[in-house]
Design a protein around this nucleic acid. Structure first.
Lengths: 337, 337
DNA sequence: TTGTAGGCGTTATCAC
DNA sequence: GTGATAACGCCTACAA
């Protein structure tokens, strides 16, 4: 089969049009709304597309139509596997409808996030899903001015940019703390992460719970540790040095909890007899370690699905969707507490 | 349906130009090559940009200039934290030069990958980094016809699309197997993953090593298990049922190895005395479990860095870079073997 | 150093 | 159902 190629290499719609002996508009329609084109013509067009190896230019399409089929997602980190479920939830909605997801990383730093948001807006994405709820003023201004549908995900912002789909970090942490108290633990230590706004909310929830059960808030009972498994080790060392009579450790992150468990193992501390352990977020790993770790299961997949749906509803002007959705959480009690 | 639509729509370069009392070209230049514009004018332009909240339209820019500042990355999965280092390596090169990374997922399925590649090409990305080396014929044809710089990453393909930056899965697996043999292990079992081309190469390397030390290849000594921690559990069960005298287990993936270690723990099998364990890929977790797991350290960060550099070199026509780079690997011996 | 003209590849719009 | 024409917002090329 003869493959003709323009001098500059790229094949355009007009080349397809010439080959199929139709106008450019017919090619455009055959590609975008096939049912609106006579079958004979449509087939001629699609054949020409195949023969020439034509690839639709979405830049030009978006520029002209003023809409894009790309949705942007901004994650604090790609290192953290808790987000993979959210990504899957989003993709499952977008893919069948011809939209595409593009992911970028913000490092949980509002400056970085601003850069990334600016880049997405410059690309004129059709919508934006942000995990962080802590944005620079400039970022917020840009987002609002752009009229781009936005969903925030990681928590309930005090002042939402637009739509929100989340669970409450504070409520979840409070519930877990009350759960531990109900199991009889008296001196619970909370291990959080510095410079992580969601971990900070979790710490507030922890304190809410202590207040509710009438326990005096002791600063010693909350500590900020590093990210990663090492943070769990730090938490255990902290307990040994500062709260030796602690009977439970509630970690703001899953990896932390595993790190802590491994450190207990190394020291020969029995879990949960010497120290109970509970975790935020229910990674697969939580049920594979021994003892399996009690944790909060969060609706990560559903958050992705609903976020994508709300964006699409807005883009396709189907409805004026509810702007804030609380998807709750669930406590999974296991052997570690 | 009454949708709130801004009276004036979006702000364009011409609006900025009017406000700053210059031509559109001066605005364009002030944004793209500031040094080529008189300081006074430049400041007037940048001021107007601020005041109007103008956001550069990269769609129009790319369409007109026929170049894009977006680089696409296709990963088999976003669930796997081994890729986060590569992402960081790429970002570290791209960001300072004004390029942006967009990530998409292929599920290690050539069909899915083809879709994702088509989407990236339709967006006319400036370059593409593919972790998989196993593409559909259509995908390869599209890539080659597009003239887009491409780097493949996950292994050395038999027939590269374009550039390659990787280590050899086969060579690495062979080296680790020889290492275990040198330590005195006589009956090594290999646990791989079904439907993962890189794991298949690793199995070949395993067999290469056995052949080299003159050990008869026994089909029983290789098994395919599921992904995730559960796969490690399966591997141990397999050994108990089929190769009870095995003295070492070499896992094609890090998560597998941890799963296996945890299962040994549960069964009371001493590691490495009853069974040694070694892993492909050196996740943080490997040195935190006890015993720490012997593993292959792969140049994930460097792979990202070099890949991005090669793409940029090609885009900016700096050089005609070497097309295949082998970054090697390293064996990290720990207590588990 | 700055400006003018025209084109990048597509779609919206309005005729036919 | 199909086609002609004029945008979409920017940049290349050239002129001043």
């Amino acid at each position: 089969m003869p493959v003709s190629k323009k001098a500059n290499g790229t094949i355009r719609m007009r080349d397809v049009a010439e080959r199929a002996q139709v106008s450019r508009m017919t090619v455009s329609r055959a590609l975008n709304s096939p049912e609106s084109v006579n079958e004979t013509l449509r087939n001629r067009v699609l054949e020409a597309v195949q023969e020439l190896g034509y690839v639709h230019n979405h830049l030009a399409r978006s520029l002209s139509s003023r809409r894009s089929n790309v949705i942007g997602l901004v994650l604090p980190s790609l290192e953290n596997s808790i987000f993979s479920q959210t990504v899957k939830g989003i993709s499952d909605v977008l893919r069948p409808l011809g939209y595409h997801l593009m992911v970028a990383e913000s490092s949980d730093d509002p400056e970085d996030e601003e850069q990334v948001i600016a880049a997405f807006l410059a690309q004129r994405v059709g919508g934006l899903i942000l995990h962080s709820t802590n944005h620079s003023p400039t970022a917020v201004r840009m987002l609002k001015a752009s009229d781009t549908p936005v969903v925030e995900n990681g928590d309930f912002p005090v002042d939402p940019v637009d739509m929100v789909v989340s669970y409450s970090n504070r409520a979840a942490a409070k519930a877990m703390t009350l759960h531990l108290a109900r199991l009889g633990y008296k001196r619970i230590v909370f291990a959080g992460l510095a410079a992580n706004p969601r971990a900070a909310e979790r710490q507030r929830g922890f304190q809410d719970a202590l207040a509710e059960i009438g326990q005096k808030s002791d600063r010693k009972h909350a500590v900020a540790v590093s990210r990663g498994f090492g943070g769990g080790t730090e938490a255990i060392s902290y307990i040994e040095a500062n709260v030796p009579d602690a009977d439970a450790l509630f970690c703001a992150g899953d990896v932390l909890a595993v790190g802590a468990l491994l450190e207990c193992d190394r020291r020969g501390w029995a879990v949960p007899d010497r120290l109970a352990i509970a975790s935020f977020d229910d990674l697969d790993l939580m049920r594979h370690v021994s003892p399996a770790i009690t944790s909060l299961r969060l609706p990560r997949y559903e958050i992705g699905r609903r976020s994508a749906q709300m964006i699409l509803d807005r883009i396709e002007e189907r409805t004026m969707p509810v702007t804030t959705i609380d998807l709750g959480f669930e406590i999974v009690q296991r052997a570690s507490s």
